[in-house]
Amino acid sequence: MLKKALDSIILAERPEKFGASYMTTILKMTGGAARAVPPFLKKTQFIGADGTPTILYSKFKTDGGRSQAAFDGLKNAFSELFRRNEYIHRADENSVKDTIVEITGLKKSDQIVRMMYGSFDAIRSFITADISKVSESTNDESIFESLPASEVTGRPGRDIGIGLSYQINIVLPETENIAVFNAIFKSLRDNLLR
């Protein structure tokens, strides 16, 4: 199903949001297996958390950028495999499955190992050239130059703006003592929010 979705993405128009209605109407994909596609595309960073296609998505749609985009997406989705073997994208099926088994602790015959390998191989099948090991972020400038401002910012006629955001999760202790919370938030304000 993932391979079919990736093949369809290349030919279909770029959506505002990649979601269930886009998959059903434009990509003609339905059923339970199709529901797994958007979360997986988020792991590859082809789409953002809100379903908006990213620069990597646009790069994947181009003939010249597809191989590098597939490599970058593969690294995003399977970062632990690449930590174990930086050339895992060139490894044979048995080696990739062995690495998955090593990481997960599952049996090689487990259906999850088969499904993980299937997803890995679906993206890997688009890597046709000798791609660089550099992350896609180092080549973003050339992508920004080739895209209209409306595709980069989502708003027509706006200049390109790059912003960073961080998400910090704080697990607060279970207490009724307000002084503990005041101390935590004072420390956050003094050390992080300046």
Rank of each mutant, 00 (worst) to 15 (best):
G65A: 11
L41W: 01
L11G: 00
S79V: 05
A36R: 05
M116L: 15
L193T: 06
K186P: 00
G163Q: 03
E136P: 04
P148A: 04
L164P: 00
I103E: 04
A129P: 01
S137Y: 10
D110C: 06
I170H: 03
D159S: 12
I47T: 08
M23E: 03
K17L: 15
I123G: 00
I26T: 15
N139R: 10
Y22C: 10
D92C: 03
Y117G: 00
G73P: 04
G157C: 08
P148Y: 02
P156D: 12
S79F: 14
K28E: 15
R124W: 05
R90Q: 13
D50M: 04
D92Y: 07
K75F: 01
E151Y: 11
D63P: 01
E93V: 05
P173K: 07
P148D: 13
I112H: 03
R83H: 10
E16Y: 13
V96T: 03
R158C: 06
E102G: 05
R158H: 09
A129D: 15
I123K: 00
T52L: 08
R114E: 15
V101F: 06
V152G: 03
G31S: 04
K107A: 13
T175N: 05
F185M: 13
T104N: 06
P38R: 06
R84M: 13
L11M: 08
H89S: 14
E16R: 14
K3N: 00
S21I: 11
A122E: 02
A183E: 15
L56M: 13
S119A: 11
A49L: 13
K61R: 15
L27D: 03
A5D: 08
S165M: 05
T128L: 11
R158Y: 09
F60G: 02
K97A: 01
L147A: 11
I127L: 07
V37E: 09
N191H: 12
R194M: 11
L74V: 06
D130S: 12
G64A: 14
V152K: 12
S187C: 06
V96W: 07
V180G: 08
S146V: 04
K97N: 02
E176K: 12
G157K: 09
V134M: 11
N177G: 02
S142E: 14
T99S: 15
S132Y: 03
Y166C: 07
P148E: 09
G32V: 04
Y22E: 11
S21M: 10
L172Y: 08
T44A: 14
K133Y: 13
M1S: 12
